[in-house]
Simulated scan of single mutants.
Amino acid sequence: MSTAQSQLLQPELVKTEYIDFWNDILVPKFLRWKHIIVDGLTLHSAQVFPKLEVAEGDRVVDAGCGFGDTAILLAKRVGPTGHVLGLDCCETFLDYGRKDAKAEGIGNVTLIEADVQTYPFEPVHDFCFSRFGTQFFENPVAGLRNMRKSLKPGGIMTMIVWRDLAENPWLAIPKEVVLRYLPPPGDDARTCGPGPFSMADTEVVTKQLEIAGYTDISFERIDAEVLVGRDAEEAIALQMELGPAGEICREAGEETERRRGEITAALKAALAPFQKPNGIMMQSSSWMVTARNPG
Rank of each mutant, 00 (worst) to 15 (best):
E220T: 08
L165T: 12
P123V: 12
A46N: 15
F67H: 13
T290D: 14
G79S: 10
R190V: 12
E104S: 02
Q10D: 15
F121H: 13
A4K: 14
P244K: 00
R250A: 08
K51I: 05
V141S: 06
G143Q: 02
M281G: 07
E113I: 12
R230S: 11
A46I: 14
C90A: 12
Q275I: 15
P153A: 11
P194H: 02
R163T: 02
E262D: 14
E210A: 11
V54Y: 03
M240H: 06
R148G: 11
P120R: 04
T81C: 00
P120E: 08
W22N: 09
H35M: 06
R250I: 02
C65M: 04
Y214C: 09
D58K: 09
V14I: 06
F67W: 11
P169Y: 01
F49Y: 13
V14G: 03
P174A: 02
T215M: 03
E220D: 12
P196C: 09
G243E: 01
V161R: 02
L182F: 00
A235C: 12
G107L: 00
W287G: 01
L111S: 06
A237P: 05
L73E: 10
A63T: 05
I19Q: 00
T110K: 13
Q117T: 04
G279Y: 11
P120A: 09
G68T: 03
C192E: 12
P153M: 03
T70L: 11
A71K: 03
F129Y: 11
S198H: 03
P120S: 09
K15H: 12
V78T: 13
S130Q: 12
V116H: 07
S130N: 08
R180H: 07
E255F: 01
T264E: 11
L165I: 13
A224E: 09
G82Y: 05
G246L: 04
E53Y: 05
E113C: 14
D201F: 06
D164V: 01
A166D: 13
V205H: 06
D20Y: 14
R77V: 00
G295Y: 15
E91A: 10
P194F: 01
P123Q: 11
D126Q: 04
A224P: 14
I217S: 07
S198Y: 02
G193F: 02
A237N: 06
V116N: 14
Q5K: 10
R258M: 07
Y119W: 08
Q283G: 15
V84A: 11
T42N: 08
P120T: 05
L271E: 10
K149G: 10
Y119P: 07
T256H: 05
I36C: 01
A269W: 03
D39N: 15
